[in-house]
C-alpha cells in the first residue's frame, strides 16, 4: 500500500482524536473529566505504625534533596518542598507546544500531620532515596509497651 506523505508529526492524528474525545466528554459530563489528575504536585504519603514508632513514606520523585524540607512545630510535622521543572526536560516541552502527554505535576507542596502525644518529636530521622522520603518517628519512652515479668513460683 502507498500512503500519502505528510510533514506532520506522527503524534498529530492521535492528538486530534484526543481533543475530540475531550470535547465530547466536556459536553456530555457536567464535571471536567480531564480534572481526574490533580493540578498541582502533592506527594502520596503512607503512614505505618509499628512497635517502635511511626514510619512515614512520602513519594517525591524528581524532587531534589535540597528542595525538600521536614519541619516540626509543636506536634505538627510538615513536609514541604518544590518539584521543579525549570532545569528538567519538561520545561523545553512546555514552551514550544510539543508536549504530547502531561500527567506529571509540578510546583510547591506542603503536607502537615499532627502527631499524637505518644510520639517523641526529638526522635525523628529522615532518609531520602530513589524519590522516596522515609521518616521514622520514635515513641516516647513511656508509650513503649511495658513488659511485666511473670514470676514463676
Amino acid at each position: 500500500m502507498l500512503y500519502a506523505t505528510s510533514e506532520r508529526s506522527p503524534f498529530d492524528s492521535f492528538l486530534g482524536l484526543r481533543r475530540d474525545l475531550d470535547r465530547l466528554f466536556k459536553e456530555a459530563l457536567p464535571i471536567d473529566a480531564s480534572r481526574s489528575v490533580p493540578l498541582a504536585f502533592s506527594p502520596t504519603i503512607e503512614v505505618e505504625e509499628n512497635d517502635t514508632g511511626l514510619t512515614l513514606r512520602a513519594e517525591v520523585p524528581g524532587v531534589e534533596p535540597q528542595n525538600l524540607n521536614v519541619a516540626i512545630d509543636g506536634d505538627v510535622l510538615t513536609i514541604s518542598g518544590e518539584r521543579e521543572t525549570k532545569f528538567g526536560r519538561e520545561a523545553s516541552f512546555a514552551n514550544d507546544g510539543s508536549r504530547h502527554r502531561s500527567e506529571r505535576r509540578f510546583g510547591k507542596f506542603s503536607r502537615a500531620l499532627r502527631l499524637s502525644d505518644q510520639y517523641d518529636t526529638e526522635k525523628i530521622d529522615a532518609q531520602h532515596s530513589n524519590g522516596i522520603l522515609t521518616l521514622h518517628i520514635g515513641k516516647k519512652d513511656a508509650a513503649q509497651p511495658r513488659r511485666i515479668a511473670v514470676e514463676a513460683k
Binding site: S9, R89, E90, S92, F93, S98, R99, H100, E103, R104
Partner: peptide
C-alpha cells in the same frame, strides 16, 4: 506510572 511525553527537534522523550 504517570508519564510525560514530549517532542524536541531531535527526539521524543
Amino acid at each position: 506510572p504517570r508519564v510525560e511525553v514530549g517532542e524536541t527537534e531531535t527526539a521524543v522523550w
